[in-house]
Amino acid sequence: MKITINVNGKQQRFDVEPNTLLLNLIRDEMSLTGTKYGCGIGECGACTVLLDGDAVLACMMLAVDADGHRVDTVEGLSDGNKLHPIQQAYLDEGAVQCGFCTPGFIMSTKALLDKNPNPNEAEIREYLNGNICRCTGYVNIVKAVQCAAVKMKE
């Protein structure tokens, strides 16, 4: 099936099978491997991408359902070599250890800050509830979100 998706701001055409998952299209066809395959059943958030600005799970979506929509992945955030303030904040605050969960967290953070530029800690923790990190213990992740919120207002 022929589909068109706006990937990180660029219109792209793909030919997919109906049973192709959006995550496989992103990783295998688009070669955007920032988006991770974690649990595959909706529980870890490693595969989080933005669909028309909303955080969704690419492991739970058919690629055909993205036809005509915009998909943003972590690769679309930086401006050339200049990291997006959210990416920089995750590094600065030590919110990354093995990094497997990080792209998902960053995309959820982007969705959160686009909707609510001033979240308090409870709001941050509630919003990021669907992203699981096995390494960091979340404290630095919350700090990174707060730091990014400040930087994005500058």
Partner: peptide, 9 residues
């Protein structure tokens, strides 16, 4: 229900 991502789908 679920998480932000689940509720968006």
């Amino acid at each position: 229900i679920g998480s932000v991502q689940v509720r968006n789908l």
